[in-house]
């Protein structure tokens, strides 16, 4: 499953990168006279929406948006999480206190509400949507790294390294970090589909990036016309589901791979 998903995701990523080449039309190009064309119409493989925009093209560009936001948000949240998690887990003390306080606060906001709040305040731009997702995500990952580091810190090999007179930064970077990356990779692989979901969710509420096409917005519109023009929602919904499943199965695959090695080591 993971293997097939990997191909699916690879294909999707290529589509996103070469979106302008793949998409038959621009996202705002309207085909007057062909509004609400059904699936399979000549020139519009997946039909058109109420304004006569090509659904396939919008899907392709919408995925580009989702992927861009998700990856950018993940890169930021992983980097922040790595630094804070390492410090909190290894040094404890003040860094740990800060992380704990941040956790308490973040857990007081449901993820979506926090994102909604941020977007409300900072506007519906690419940066604020991305930041909203990153801010909502880093605490969880930082806590994971912290827990991992605290476990690894107590391993005998760290004590052995200390007895060889290795200093704190060396221990953290050379001995602890490489062994903490596995679980981080697993959570990150699950965080990407989650970020895609959040991005689409914000658009669904009308709080997405205002000048970029989004799947959430397509679903939002599609729901409104679900009874009269179901083709407007069917293809975005299916494309969305397939994408998320592919990412999830890749995550499952990565997790299983790490489970096996960690079990074999013991």
């Amino acid at each position: 499953m993971a293997f097939i998903s990997l191909w699916v995701v690879a294909l999707l990523v290529l589509v996103a990168i070469f979106a302008p080449l793949v998409a038959p039309y621009g996202t705002q190009e309207t085909d007057y006279g062909h509004q609400l064309a059904p699936i399979g119409s000549p020139g519009h493989l997946l039909g058109t929406d109420t304004l006569g925009r090509d659904i396939l093209s919008r899907l392709v560009f919408g995925f580009r948006t989702a992927l861009l936001v998700a990856f950018a948000a993940e890169v930021i949240s992983v980097l922040v999480a790595l630094v804070v998690g390492l410090l909190a887990g290894y040094r404890g003390g003040r860094a740990d206190g800060i992380l704990m306080a941040a956790t308490d606060i973040m857990y007081a906001f449901p993820t979506y509400l926090f994102a909604v709040l941020l977007v409300t305040v900072f506007g519906r731009s690419f940066w604020s949507v991305m930041a909203a997702i990153a801010v909502a995500g880093w605490v969880t990952q930082a806590r994971l790294i912290r827990a991992q580091v605290m476990t690894l810190k107590r391993r005998d090999y760290v004590e052995a390294a200390r007895s060889m007179d290795a200093q704190g930064p060396t221990i953290a970077m050379r001995y602890i970090l490489p062994n903490a990356l596995g679980p981080l990779l697993v959570t990150t692989s699950f965080a990407v589909p989650a970020a895609i979901t959040t991005e689409a969710g914000l658009s669904l509420l009308g709080l997405g990036i205002s000048d970029m096409p989004s799947w959430g917005a397509m679903i939002n519109e599609g729901v409104r016309y679900a009874s009269s023009a179901p083709h407007m929602i069917i293809s975005p919904a299916i494309a969305f589901a397939v994408t998320l499943l592919a990412f999830t199965w890749i995550g499952d695959g990565i997790r299983d791979a790490f489970d096996i090695t960690s079990e074999a080591r013991r």
């Binding site: 052995a160 060889m164 080591r265």
Partner: peptide
């Protein structure tokens, strides 16, 4: 550096 240590759990004390 003139003192070194050998631990109980040999696997746990080696960097995997």
């Amino acid at each position: 550096r003139r003192m070194q240590m050998v631990f109980q759990n040999p696997y746990g004390s080696l960097l995997p």
